Amino acid sequence: MRVVRGAIVRIGQQPSGHGLGGPAPTDPVSAEGVAPRSSILTKPIFAKPMAYIALTKPRVIELLLVATIPTMLLAQRGTVDIALILSTLFGGWMGAASANTLNCVADADIDKLMKRTERRPLARAAVPTSHAFVFGVALGLGSFAWLWWAANLLSGLLVVGTILFYVFVYTLGLKRRTSQNVVWGGAAGCMPVLVGWSAVTGTIGWQSLVLFAVIFFWTPPHTWALAMRYKEDYKAAGVPMLPVVATEEKVTKQIVVYTWLTVFATIALIPATGVVYAAVAVAAGAWFLLMAHQLYAGVRRGESVKPLKLFLQSNNYLAIVFCGLAVDSVLGWTTVGSILG
């Protein structure tokens, strides 16, 4: 799995989106997992397998899987259980791949209308829709079974809940009906941290809920920045993303608000961590806030802004924060909470 959109990092993905699915780039490599035309992977024998891989949106999954690792390290601070981490990542990968595939099935009609998504497998009829549906369901069932066996029942149930929420609540329920779609639908992209924490502890601790909040608040500014760049695409497809229905000033103001909430959430985790994470969270937070405020100020001055820059840098921000958390957790130094308490 984010978030850690599981989480984190690449979070180094190209324009893609959030959560377990979301918008994906047009570049045939980064967006669809399809190799460049000069690659051997474009030969006919590889066409069908590559199309199925593309359905899973592999670059988006990177974001989901990498965030899971720091969460698991925090849950067993000072200890590294490689076997459990790898097992959880595999189960999380299947869950994210399932959600992304089923998202492609549900969005096949509008993907054909958007330049950014017109190369997705179902949009170009590279895979039958019925086959993609069966593939997505099989991945979801496999994810549940694997995590139940490798970790515990709670982590398996959380994955199933994530898939159902992403497909039915976000994709089918919110995405085409409200400009707040990514705010509430983004909750699906936060679930990997809960899965990772539960795989280690068998519970859902307050620390994992704070990490959930970090990704939840990070998702809107991250996605709205991308939507500002591809506003016409969303408009053509009839998807009421906030940049489609609101002015740039209103959108960037909301980006600033959610960026502040993101930074506050990262700071709320400091008592459970050491000085390494604390320093990284504060420094990276100041940088992220500066970028958001610069975008807002540029729009207010009537300048030509580059929202895609904020989108890409938001990936880096989340990556830095979660990498800092991973290092801090492995070191296992005295927590800030203990020092102050």
Rank of each mutant, 00 (worst) to 15 (best):
V3H: 00
R5V: 08
R5G: 12
G12H: 02
G21W: 03
G21M: 10
S38E: 13
S38D: 12
S39R: 00
I40P: 09
P44K: 09
I45G: 02
F46M: 11
K48V: 15
Y52L: 12
T56Q: 10
K57G: 06
R59Y: 15
I61N: 07
I61A: 14
E62G: 14
L63D: 06
L65P: 09
P70R: 03
M72W: 03
L73E: 02
Q76E: 14
G78M: 04
T79R: 11
V80Y: 02
L84K: 13
W93V: 01
M94F: 11
G95R: 01
G95Q: 01
A99G: 10
D109L: 09
I110S: 00
I110P: 00
R116V: 06
P121C: 13
R124L: 06
T129W: 00
A132G: 14
F133C: 05
F133M: 14
G136D: 01
A138M: 10
A138C: 09
L139I: 06
G140V: 03
W149V: 11
W149S: 13
G156F: 02
L157P: 03
L157H: 00
L158Q: 05
G161P: 02
I163Y: 04
Y166I: 04
F168R: 07
L174Q: 02
K175W: 06
K175P: 08
S179M: 01
Q180V: 04
W184G: 00
G185Y: 04
G186L: 07
G186S: 08
C190D: 07
M191S: 12
P192G: 05
V193F: 01
G196A: 10
A199G: 03
G202K: 12
G205A: 15
Q207N: 04
Q207T: 06
V210I: 15
A213K: 04
I215P: 00
T223F: 15
W224V: 13
W224F: 06
W224I: 09
A225R: 09
R229K: 15
Y230D: 13
K231W: 07
Y234D: 12
K235H: 13
P240W: 06
L242N: 11
V244A: 05
V244Y: 00
T247S: 15
T247C: 06
E249I: 12
K253H: 14
Y258C: 03
T259Q: 10
T259N: 10
T259G: 11
W260M: 13
L261P: 06
V263N: 09
A268V: 14
I270R: 04
T273G: 00
G274P: 05
V275D: 02
A279P: 02
V282N: 03
A283V: 14
A284N: 06
G285I: 09
M291Q: 13
V299D: 05
S304E: 15
K306H: 07
P307Q: 09
S314K: 02
S314H: 02
A319V: 03
A319M: 12
I320Q: 01
I320N: 01
C323I: 14
L325P: 02
V327M: 01
S329R: 01
S329D: 01
V330P: 01
G332M: 11
G332R: 11
